[in-house]
Design a protein around this nucleic acid. Structure first.
Lengths: 197, 197
DNA sequence: CCCTCATATGACCACCCGGTCATACCTACG
DNA sequence: CGTAGGTATGACCGGGTGGTCATATGAGGG
């Protein structure tokens, strides 16, 4: 968490720091991102950064949280949608895509976070995965009870598949992902490969 | 490609270099792997490394290729299997898992390769993806013609899904992956979420 | 024996990193 | 005016990096 000093800053300066950090963390994973470049790009002294944040990790997690807060503002609408699980998933990925288009840098920050292999970040990663799993399990359970989703399937395995495909999808958003392909991919998951009768 | 000098080395010394490099690249992605540590761990001088390889990238690609050659020796059997596409996929991931158990370090090297974000590696990454896509498209096409696989699906989308799930699966092999979960995941892909009648 | 040529070496280079700290600055209050 | 406390600063630290190069070694052939 940033120190109080950071929040005492004039909004303009604070934003300059955030912007520079977002740009750096959008381009490089945590370990390869350079604090030195961030301070150069926002025109403050290296030492000042340590008046605002404990260390590089503190700054990073602040920026990642910020990116996820903004993403949540887009994506959470999907879960309050009236409709079956397939419509919800549809909307979820459509909104994720919209977020990626509107905030490409924040999107990349949030995205690169999942590639982190640092021991210091593994706990945060697991926390994020669990929170996603809970949201998904809820929706899936209802759909199985309603008979919309094949209840022979293992919910854990279903989440595994959606998590994997979701990650890869979101990875590919930056190269543009037409609605058609997105639809086709969700159809593959919906109908499965095996021919029906 | 390594220089001729490298192949003139006594087998034992050559292997020591390979082993040290494999260990380093199994633990760290290309950008964070340290040449200095590699030469320390195999007991040769830093300068000698540059008698054998052009630079760090040259060494890295040699090691990655080597890992993939070994992996192919395991995995290629799946494609010559008599049986439908589902049996082939089954065998493919089972063999991948076996490889990960038998050669955990090579497995990690091959695996981490896909996380590379360096511009210098993106061409190699795309080449690898295309080669996988071709193998897969072949099997998929046949299965669709035989009516085993739902031919309404977009082959590109099917590959996307399998590529994504395959990557995530293989990522998780190092935490042990019981056969049951693997089977369940493949079932999710096979039958799809939507209830059948 | 000497000359040649491939190979081995590690000190060294320039550069980068995250983080620190003595110092200076600035404002507000007494 | 003086002092106190929050803030800004950038030179500096120790340590790391990939890569180079003058020099040494060693084997083979004339």
């Amino acid at each position: 968490m940033p120190k109080q000093t950071f929040f005492n800053l004039e909004a303009e300066k604070r934003q300059a720091i955030i912007d520079a950090a977002v740009r750096e963390f959008a381009e490089h994973p945590f370990e390869q991102a350079s604090l030195t470049k961030i301070v150069e790009n926002c025109g403050i002294a290296k030492g000042s950064m340590y008046q605002y944040f404990d260390d590089k990790l503190d700054l990073y997690m602040y920026i990642v949280d910020l990116a996820y807060e903004q993403k949540k503002a887009y994506v959470s609408r999907a879960f309050s949608l009236e409709g079956d699980i397939f419509q919800i998933l549809n909307e979820y990925y459509r909104l994720s895509y919209e977020f990626a288009l509107d905030h490409p840098l924040l999107h990349q920050v949030a995205n690169k976070f999942w590639d982190s292999r640092s021991a210091a970040l593994s706990a945060e990663l697991e926390k994020g995965r669990l929170s996603r799993a809970r949201d998904f399990a809820q929706v899936l359970h209802e759909a199985m009870e309603e008979g919309i989703v094949n209840s022979d399937l293992d919910p854990e395995a279903v989440f595994f598949v959606y998590h994997a495909v979701g990650k890869e999808l979101i990875d590919h958003f930056h190269q543009g992902c037409d609605d058609r392909l997105l639809q086709q991919i969700l159809d593959v998951l919906k109908y499965g490969l095996a021919a029906r009768n």
